[in-house]
């Protein structure tokens, strides 16, 4: 039996903005359906750009990129994006924000409301449905933002440092919950982060990138089985993996200096 085709496939992809220096240099990468892949690397290594290419917010300069067996543009329908900021519309309630992608798709109001209520229950914000973003904490806003992304029932979820602005305790909780939501609504994840610990906890594969120009430095499989418990963070093999990735991140930075 042959492997299913990758859901995201980069073949020698280059990216320049205008006449500037290359941002991404000959990226070749396969992501299998159902994977949770984290991208980690120094600032300027192009990891956010990589997500923008997959989401068709920005076109590749050369090379081939296929998403869900089609062009990024065509695959958009099955894709959702979570930004570093919650990017909620301040004039809509939490429920209104969760409904937004459905509204853009023309889903009838009654159906939207039911769906938003389910998703808010999933992210444990049922009681906050009628609150406006400014009444929510940073962690709550991010839950709404993820619920909004999940309302699209995405096959691929792109996350660009979604928890970077949160304190460590909130971030740990959200990491655990994110894996839980994934059990209920499976998606392939491409996750950009600056936190080695977070990447190890969440991913089944970590891609370490180097900067100037952005390229893949190393790939690290993370074999801890899902579902993962918070206690994983206390185990020696977890620490060993964090140390391994940290070391690779260090050599990635030296790679630039060379």
């Amino acid at each position: 039996m042959s492997d299913p085709p990758p859901i995201v496939q980069f073949r020698a992809v280059n990216k320049h903005y205008g006449a500037g220096p290359p941002v991404l240099d000959r990226i070749s990468l396969d992501v299998a359906a159902g994977e949770f892949v984290s991208l980690i690397g120094p600032s300027g290594c192009g990891k956010s750009t990589l997500l923008r290419l997959v989401s068709a917010l920005s076109p590749v300069t050369s090379g081939a990129l296929s998403v869900d067996g089609a062009t990024p543009e065509q695959a958009r329908e099955h894709l959702a994006f979570v930004f570093q900021e919650a990017t909620l519309l301040p004039w809509l309630t939490a429920a209104g924000n969760v409904e937004l992608p459905l509204r853009l798709r023309g889903v009838p109001a009654a159906e939207r409301r039911v769906r938003a209520a389910e998703l808010l229950a999933l992210v444990r914000l049922r009681a906050a449905a009628e609150l406006y973003p400014r009444q929510l904490s940073g962690g709550m806003k991010m839950r709404v933002s993820i619920a909004r992304a999940l309302s699209r029932e995405p096959r691929i979820l792109l996350l660009d440092e979604p928890f970077a602005a949160l304190d460590e305790i909130t971030r740990n909780h959200l990491n655990e919950e994110l894996l839980g939501w994934r059990e209920k609504a499976p998606f392939t994840a491409l996750f950009v982060t600056h936190s080695v610990a977070e990447a190890v906890f969440l991913s089944n594969r970590i891609l370490v990138m180097a900067a100037g120009p952005g390229r893949l430095h190393a790939g690290v499989p993370v074999d801890f089985p899902y579902p993962r418990e918070a206690t994983l963070r206390e185990r020696p093999e977890y620490f060993a993996k964090v140390a391994e990735v940290s070391r690779l991140l260090h050599t990635a930075e030296e790679d630039r200096a060379a």
Binding site: L57, R76, F81, E85, T87, L89, P101, L104
Partner: peptide, 14 residues
């Protein structure tokens, strides 16, 4: 309107 919001609308086919 903030750039990420505009990106979001574009990406979600508005």
């Amino acid at each position: 309107a903030e750039a990420p919001m505009v990106d979001l609308f574009r990406m979600y086919g508005a």
